[in-house]
């Protein structure tokens, strides 16, 4: 696809290069490939409709905001309980218990334990780990995708990592901190 940049439309120039990041984020948000694809498609349509009002600065941030809003609308239609404040939901849930996974090939112990510990995190905390540590988004980009301040991304991230770390500590996979 060798298209002269000067002949590209703003949509081609700003939106098309971000499709992969959008799909990564959508997969983290939905945890379902088909839903993620639908969500990105939704996002592309909204971006296309709004491209005339976009000033051309920070396209990723703009698109992540669109994706987040599209996702909220989808959840509102499908799962209204997800609209609660995630921090309150977390506090209410305490330690969210996920299904115990018994992988037959648990050789990479730390990695396997991490995956298990990640699944046990409450959704808001799993999400920040997924977006920042796995998908490689910056604090600011994750904040755009989640619609929360960067400071909240940081605090959730740090709490989530602390939980993962303690989990590894309990299983003897992390060195004792000497406390």
């Amino acid at each position: 696809m060798n298209v002269d940049a000067s002949r590209q439309t703003p949509f081609e120039q700003h939106v098309l290069p971000e499709i992969e990041v959008l799909l990564r984020v959508a997969r983290a948000l939905t945890r379902n490939d088909a839903d993620a694809e639908d969500l990105v498609q939704d996002t592309l349509i909204r971006a296309h409709n709004g491209i005339e009002h976009f000033d051309g600065r920070h396209p990723r941030a703009w698109l992540l905001t669109i994706l987040r809003n599209a996702n909220i609308n989808r959840n509102r239609r499908r799962r209204p309980e997800l609209l609660r404040d995630p921090d309150l939901t977390f506090d209410r849930m305490g330690r969210a218990a996920g299904p115990e996974q018994t992988d037959a090939f648990v050789d990479l112990e730390l990695d396997a334990e991490l995956v298990r510990a990640l699944d046990r995190l409450a959704e808001p905390f799993r999400l920040v780990i997924d977006l920042v540590d796995i998908q490689g988004l910056s604090y600011a980009e994750a904040a755009q995708a989640l619609g929360i301040p960067p400071g909240t991304v940081m605090s959730r991230l740090h709490r989530a990592r602390g939980r993962l770390r303690r989990r590894l500590d309990q299983t003897g996979l992390a060195p004792r901190s000497g406390k």
Binding site: E20, D111, I129
Partner: peptide, 22 residues
């Protein structure tokens, strides 16, 4: 170590899905 292990889970999204979206 935790960050490195998590980053190792960064895999490209399904290519067919990406292609359809492009």
């Amino acid at each position: 170590r935790i960050k490195a292990a998590l980053a190792s889970h960064r895999v490209p999204p399904p290519s067919d899905s990406l292609e359809r979206l492009r």
